[in-house]
Design a protein around this nucleic acid. Structure first.
Lengths: 190, 190
DNA sequence: TATAAAAGAATGAACGTTCATTCTGTAGGG
DNA sequence: CCCTACAGAATGAACGTTCATTCTTTTATA
């Protein structure tokens, strides 16, 4: 196995275990076993568990942003851009269920708290969204509410329905996704 | 200190520590210290940590349901009942911030997974809400979507904005709460 | 053969839980 | 009223377990 492959394998093993079992169910020994390497080997690639976990998060976030940006209609109307963003978000989440589960575990762990303190916004992705929302508010298309509230109205439900889909409570077809994103649009628009 | 007081004190200490620091930051020794009792004493009231944590959850949930039911306008229109439920939900969450944080920690922990498996619906509170939503859908007031999706559209954002308020990102006034619940109404209504 | 990589056993810290001991309040005998 | 005997509540040091991390040995590569 190539050096790079091995690192990838370890990251993937950590991602899967944390996503499926939470941090309690993902000790280093188990990550090593799942990756098919010795426990000590992990420390050749990451200097401690924190580093590994943060690296997994970084990669997941990266993929996430990339997915959201794909095919983004920069020149479209506010409504078009909003609907696109919402649908793409849900499709990405349900197509990569482990990533959503991992992010949720991460955010509700000591890592997440630290992460929140360190970052507090500033993503490329967030910037685009912020741009879209600011524009929509200025043009009086959206309700005159805090950005945080508009975010909550748009993405809160989308993440929730994605989780419900992943956990098998509902089955989201493309049509259902569009209807749900449409409902979010109704929530934010004037 | 009365026997009952002591049990209460332990429960409160556990609630606060878990809510503020997560399960990682709430070892039994620390819970004992915060409650002002010896570590062993806890085991006179709870036979293990699991039992203690589940008891805390039970109490928090109980208070939560009680808060939601208070002043519920059973005879009001669908819209009135919806708006009332939403506003009361948010007010309770931001007035008892530790309870929201505890519930979130609980759900994203091994306890939460087990809990989900064991219960899978069936609350008094959920029943009332389900009733309201079913009625609204039958009367064609709500969009024709799965109950889970309607839940996500209504309560997802409300929990999110409550969290944002607790964490200090926004400041929810009564007026803002009403506007936000109103926006959720827009999301679910036809 | 020499050097780097990998493995997994060893280590020590942190945790939940136990239990021998101490403390506190009450009942009974003088 | 005082002193002793006792019960059960409380304690916290000690135990066994689990985990991240380190160390030593083995394996592969050049």
């Amino acid at each position: 196995m190539e050096k790079c492959d091995k690192k990838e394998t370890i990251i993937q093993a950590a991602l899967e275990l944390v996503a499926e079992q939470g941090f309690h169910g993902a000790p280093m020994a188990m990550i090593a076993e799942k990756a098919g390497v010795g426990a000590g080997t992990i420390y050749r690639y990451f200097d401690c568990k924190d580093t590994l976990i943060k690296e997994v998060y970084r990669i997941v976030e990266e993929r996430f942003v990339a997915a959201l940006m794909e095919g983004y209609p920069e020149k479209g109307s506010v409504r078009e851009r909003f609907l696109h963003m919402g649908a793409v978000l849900v499709r990405h989440l349900i197509q990569a269920p482990l990533e959503l589960r991992f992010i949720e575990q991460f955010h509700n762990s000591p890592y997440g708290v630290i992460h929140r303190r360190e970052k507090l916004f500033g993503d490329k992705e967030k910037d685009i969204i912020r741009e879209l929302f600011d524009e929509a508010r200025q043009q009086q298309i959206f309700k005159d509410l805090d950005l945080s509230i508009l975010f909550a109205l748009s993405f809160g439900p989308l993440v929730d329905v994605s989780r419900d889909h992943i956990l098998g409570f509902i089955n989201l077809s493309d049509q259902l996704i569009e209807q749900t994103v449409g409902a979010c649009w109704d929530a934010v628009r004037r």
